[in-house]
């Protein structure tokens, strides 16, 4: 069942990581919206026509794992 925005329990949790696509092959993600930071990350996907804008998301996850 759909509800008006901000009325569900999950809606009460502060969301401090936000990701959005920029163009076809890149996503911009910000840690710390409203909290500590901000720390921005650019991730990309492999493609035939241009260099990748940033590491693919799986690689960023493994980088975090390494750290």
């Amino acid at each position: 069942m759909t509800q008006p925005a901000s009325s569900s329990a999950a809606s009460q949790t502060q969301r401090n990581i936000i990701a959005r696509p920029v163009g076809e092959d890149t996503v911009l993600t910000l840690i710390g919206a409203g909290g500590r930071g901000p720390w921005p990350f650019v991730t990309g996907i492999p493609n035939l026509t241009s260099d990748i804008g940033g590491p693919p998301p799986q690689y960023l996850a493994v980088a975090a794992w390494a750290a």
């Binding site: 990581i17 990701a19 993600t29 799986q58 975090a64």
Partner: peptide, 21 residues
């Protein structure tokens, strides 16, 4: 001083980026 993000939020940023992709 928060010069760098902690590893766990960085991993979740990767998850958010993966989801958006």
């Amino acid at each position: 001083e928060g010069w760098v993000p902690p590893p766990f939020p960085t991993a979740q940023a990767a998850w958010a980026a993966s989801t958006a992709t």
